[in-house]
Design a protein around this nucleic acid. Structure first.
Ligand SMILES: [Zn+2]
Ligand SMILES: [Zn+2]
Ligand SMILES: [Zn+2]
Ligand SMILES: [Zn+2]
Lengths: 121, 121
DNA sequence: TACGGAAATGAAAATCATTTTCATTTGTGA
DNA sequence: TCACAAATGAAAATGATTTTCATTTCCGTA
C-alpha cells in the first residue's frame, strides 16, 4: 500500500523540505513532470503515514509538509517582503520541555515563529 | 470600525469560550437568533483584531476562536481532548527579542504553542 | 422631523484547498 | 497471454472562508 511516490518526495526535498501540496504540484508541472494533483495528495498522505514527512498548518490553514529528520528549527519572517530566516530554537526547546513536564504533558511538540520587518522593509 | 458584534461574543462565551465560526453560527440558529454567517465571520475577525479572542487551527484546518485574557501568554494544548493551559512565555520573550535584533528585524511579534497529550489522554 | 451619507448586514456567488468518484492504465504473478 | 490488484488522474463534490452587492440601519445635520 506504499503510495509514497518517489518523484513527489524528491520534489519536496528540492523545495527545501518544506512545501504545500499545491506548491509541489505546481513545481512539478513547471519542471515538465507529468503528474496529477490527486497523486500528489495521496503520495504526501502516504509519506505522512510512513512518518517520512511531518504535516503542519500555515496561518491561512493550508497544510504544509516537511521532511522529517531535518534539523529542527524555527523561522523569522518579514511581514513586508516575506523573506524568511531559519533560526535556532535555543531557549525555546528547554522552555517547551519544562512547561510540558510541569503540566504532565507527554509526546509534545511545539511551534514558534517570530515575525517583523526586515532591514529592507 | 468595531464590528465586534456582542451577540457573537456572548455566544462564544456560552460555547465554553472555544468554537469555530460554523459552530457559533449553528448555535445561534438553534437558539433562534437571526444572524448571517458572514456577520459571524466578520465579528470574529474583528474580535481577533481587537485581541479579544485568539485564533488557532484544528488538525483538519478549521479555524477555532477562543476567548483570551489580554495579557500576553502562550498555550499548552492537548491533542487528545483540546484542553488548554495558558502559560507564561518566560525564556521565549527574550529569545524572540534577541533573534530579531541579531537579524536587524524591527516591529516584531511572535507566536509559540506547545502541543502534546495531557495526563487524562 | 426629514435628508443624506456612512456603516452594518446577509444572501448568494466566488474562491480555494482537499477529498471522493470512477473509468482507465499499469504492473505483476500464474 | 490472462486475470486481477494497485496506481493514476480528470472531473465532480465538499466544506470553510471570502467577496460582492443590494438593502437596511444608524447618526449627524439642516
Ligand atoms: Zn522585508
Ligand atoms: Zn523548537
Ligand atoms: Zn487531553
Ligand atoms: Zn511570548
Amino acid at each position: 500500500m506504499s503510495r509514497s511516490n518517489p518523484r513527489v518526495l524528491s520534489t519536496l526535498e528540492r523545495a527545501g523540505g518544506f512545501a504545500s501540496a499545491q506548491e509541489i504540484y505546481r513545481l512539478m508541472q513547471r519542471e515538465g513532470e507529468s503528474i496529477g494533483l490527486t497523486t500528489v495528495y495521496r503520495a504526501l498522505q502516504s509519506l505522512v503515514n510512513d512518518k517520512i514527512v511531518d504535516v503542519l498548518r500555515r496561518d491561512d490553514g493550508e497544510a504544509i509538509y516537511r521532511l522529517c529528520g531535518e534539523a529542527h528549527h524555527h523561522h523569522l519572517v518579514c511581514k513586508g517582503c516575506g523573506d524568511t530566516v531559519e533560526i535556532e530554537g535555543g531557549a525555546i526547546e528547554k522552555w517547551a520541555k519544562a512547561m510540558a513536564e510541569e503540566h504532565g504533558f507527554r509526546d509534545v511538540g511545539h511551534t514558534a515563529e517570530i515575525f517583523g520587518l526586515c532591514t529592507k522593509c
